[in-house]
Design a binder for these strands. Structure first.
Lengths: 175, 175
DNA sequence: CCGTGATTTCGATCTTTACCGAAAGAACCG
DNA sequence: CGGTTCTTTCGGTAAAGATCGAAATCACGG
């Protein structure tokens, strides 16, 4: 499949950007390609378009599936697995955040909590204070995240798109 | 310098966690060590404690300085550069977010804006729609971020620590 | 302006990670 | 059941990234 120059630019940039955030470049590119594609693609089309090995595409697709942001589609008269992006950009964003939080933030939260338990049963006061502060940051963020998680995408978008939303909120919480 | 088992665990975990977010493990470890340290450390102490080459520490410290989260301290009768964490965990968090946003999100925003300009001057409608949606997500996030950025850490912490904050906010924005 | 100690630079390794492609494995058809 | 087509696994290789340590540079006191 041929890509327009703009599509190419987007996909390449997406790959580089992903890399900086600890995401495999090829995986990010596959994601970018699927995102732009008007219809579901199969592994071979992706492989051809991005010039990467079929096997690499296979692995990448599974990775994206495990994040929950793409799905398999089957169409009549086509034996190949075709893939498409699930939901809109906002949902996608939420899925990615959720996935990374669960795999990377939650374990840290666990570690900090354990450390805190041990430190409270006698440990260096300075360490206790520092770990305590960090734990507080993580707990607060976690709690905020959980609350926001419950709100529908629709509601979030609606509110986020109102101009000057933060100052409006601040008015409700005076000094 | 000797580390307690808890400090070790924290620093090691911090390093691994950093790696997953595209941060050099050693840099993250240096950061973790400085975070726990009751007083400023010089490069050699860090090098010894973490068992990494002196030069690697030097580079790592500069990296952390460029993020704006550590500072150099000089004390009388000591010719070495000593380093310490700047501000509390919340400020640290803000600095890191700011740094990464500027270097990694802003360029993407730029790319999307450019792409959108080109697409509006005639381009595939589907691509235009998809890039448009992604751009909207980035613009909304960017705008939200800029608004929050202006609010003092103090205020954010105060509000964040109130229980159930999100549902309180939602009450002000009925359907 | 020399000497000492601290710091940084930089090329050479070492380690990790990504990627390929051949072969094995599934799913499906007749 | 073979045969066909699609998918996955996996060992080897290549590329990228991290780390080291020697040498260059810098900073400052005497």
């Amino acid at each position: 499949m041929e890509l327009t120059p703009i599509a190419q630019k987007f996909i390449v940039h997406w790959g580089e950007m992903g890399e900086k955030w600890g995401i495999n470049r090829t995986v990010a590119q596959i994601h970018g390609l699927l995102y732009l594609s008007p219809e579901p693609l199969n592994a071979e089309e992706i492989s051809d378009t991005l010039s990467v090995a079929r096997s690499t595409v296979s692995v990448g697709l599974h990775e994206l599936e495990s994040w929950g942001i793409i799905r398999v589609v089957h169409t009549l008269g086509d034996r190949t697995d075709r893939f498409e992006i699930k939901g809109d950009v906002y949902e996608m964003f939420r899925f990615i955040v959720e996935y990374r939080k669960r795999r990377e933030v939650d374990p840290t939260l666990g570690m900090l909590r354990e450390a805190m338990v041990e430190l409270e049963a006698g440990g260096d006061p300075h360490t206790r204070e520092k770990i305590g502060e960090m734990l507080a940051l993580f707990e607060t963020s976690d709690s905020l995240y959980r609350q926001i998680q419950k709100v529908s995408t629709q509601t979030i978008v609606r509110i986020a798109k109102m101009g000057d939303i933060v100052s409006k909120i601040l008015k409700f919480f005076p000094e």
